[in-house]
Every structure is written in structure tokens, then in C-alpha cells.
Amino acid sequence: MNRESLARGVPHAAPGAIVARALAGRIHADPAEGRTVRFGRNRPHVDLCVGETDLRVSRRHGLLTCRDGRWWVTNTGQLPIRMPGTRWLFPDEDSVPLPDGYTPLFIRGSRDREHLLELYVAGGTAKQLAPQHDSVTQPPTRWRFTPDEHLMLVVLGQRYLLHEANPQPVSRQHAAQVLAELQPDANWSVKRVEHMVADVRARLSAAGVHGLLREEVGEPVGNTLNDNLLRELVLSTSLVPPDLALLDDHRDDL
């Protein structure tokens, strides 16, 4: 089952409001000049707790501030905050304005763990759209998977969920190794990963997703088929950044 994620939008937020979500909770703040939202490890003294069991995360790692009609993020911690793509926000660096819509932030913690802070800024242009009060709601095209398929796709596509600049699927060999470590009794192998990925691509292709068959992309194929698959799953929010917590959940069971 997919975890709740701001990547799917915040339909009832007022224009200019910000919603922030971490593993420990969620907070909503309407726009007001000078309003701040503090985030970090020290739960009693921040508005949103992030990485409370990880000493690599600062007690107050950052601020979200409403200024001049926009929300800005400031790093007040000791480690940089990674934004989508190649952007890093370092301590004592100038604040960065947040765009409308969805922005995930990542704080690198102990043992290469990445703590996720999801942000969503409600756009101020919604009032310009024509009212659609009685129109039939368009259902999202979110693909459903078995628990094993879901875990395998999260392992395969973890670089996409981390919003790296130029992500690629992890290799089938590496995916099988990670899955075997997460589920030692589940008989994971390279062949099982290959067959499961092929089954998922075939299902989505039959449902109308282009670029998942060898004859649709041409030679050399390389990682193209799995790259197209994972981009479809991320863009459709069938896989979302909070799904990365599955990797920690399974490690806790080891």
C-alpha cells in the first residue's frame, strides 16, 4: 500500500499556504508575513520533527519562512539539505524560495539514510480557473501492485524517489541482493526480479503506457524500458518518496 504523500497534492489548501510532512507528522500554515515553521530533531522545540532518532540531524535543522508573499527555506543545521536535482542548501547560505506545488527535501543522516521532508505550496492562481463544481472527478491513474512488487519497485527505483538529477534504475543484480537482505526468507534472485519487472511492464503496456516494450524503443535498449517504467510510476504518483521508508521498515525486522 502506498503511503500518504504530498506529491498527490493538497486540494483544500488556501492559495499561498504551505503544508509540510515528515514521518513524525504534518503541519499546515497559512500565508502571513514573517510566519515561520521550524523543523529538526528536537521534537519539543520545533514545529515539525524530522529524524528524531538520528544524531546526524540537527536539533533545529531548518526554517520555513513566509516573506514577501512567498515561502523560503533556510538551513540552520550542521549538514546540507538536498533539494530536487543537483541543488544543495548549505548552512549559513541565503534562503531559497520554494516554487508552487511539491518540493521534497532530504537530510542525510547516519548510515547514508535520507530523512524526507515533503513540502507543498498551494498556488495562488487557482482562483483564475473556471469553476468545476458539478463536473465528474477525474480519477488518478495510479497503478496497483502486490506487496512484493511494490517493494521490488521501490528498491529498483530508489534513485527516482530520492529526486536525483539523472536517476537510473539500480541493476537487477543489486536489486536482488538488497531484496534478499530485506527479506531473507523470500527467495529473491536476479531471475525473480527480471520476471517480476517484465510482468509489471507487460501489464502497464497492455493498459496503454508507451515505451515499455523493446519494439517501441529500438536498439540498444539498455535501461530504457525500466527507466520509462519508473518515470511513469513516479509521475503517476504510484511510487512516492515516503515509500522509501519501506526499506527501513524491513531492515528493522532483520
Rank of each mutant, 00 (worst) to 15 (best):
P184F: 03
D54F: 13
L119Y: 09
E118M: 14
D227N: 05
I18Q: 01
K127M: 08
V178D: 04
T146C: 08
D227K: 02
L79T: 11
A7N: 02
G69H: 05
A14C: 07
Y160A: 08
A14E: 08
T103M: 12
D100R: 09
G123W: 10
Y160P: 05
V57R: 03
A180Q: 07
D54S: 13
G222N: 02
R43V: 06
T76P: 05
N75P: 03
L89C: 08
D68T: 08
V200M: 01
N228A: 07
H150T: 02
H150G: 03
S135D: 11
E114S: 13
I27E: 05
R144S: 15
D185Q: 10
T141H: 09
D134N: 07
R144N: 14
R70G: 11
E164A: 13
W143K: 02
R26W: 11
R35S: 14
G101Y: 02
A20C: 11
R56P: 04
A180P: 01
V10Q: 01
G16K: 10
P167H: 12
V19K: 03
L48F: 09
L162G: 10
L161S: 08
S189M: 00
A206K: 02
L156K: 12
E93V: 01
V190N: 04
P241H: 09
I18L: 10
L116W: 12
A130W: 01
D227F: 01
S5E: 06
H195I: 10
R144T: 15
E52M: 12
D253C: 12
K127S: 10
R60K: 09
L119W: 09
K191M: 05
V19C: 11
L117I: 15
R214E: 14
L233V: 00
A130N: 00
L23M: 11
D199R: 02
R56L: 12
R111Q: 11
E33F: 14
G62H: 03
A14N: 04
T86F: 13
G25A: 10
A14L: 10
Y102P: 06
H150K: 06
D47H: 13
L63I: 02
T224S: 06
V193R: 10
E33R: 10
L247P: 08
G123S: 15
P11W: 14
V190R: 06
Q177A: 15
S58E: 02
Q183N: 07
F106L: 15
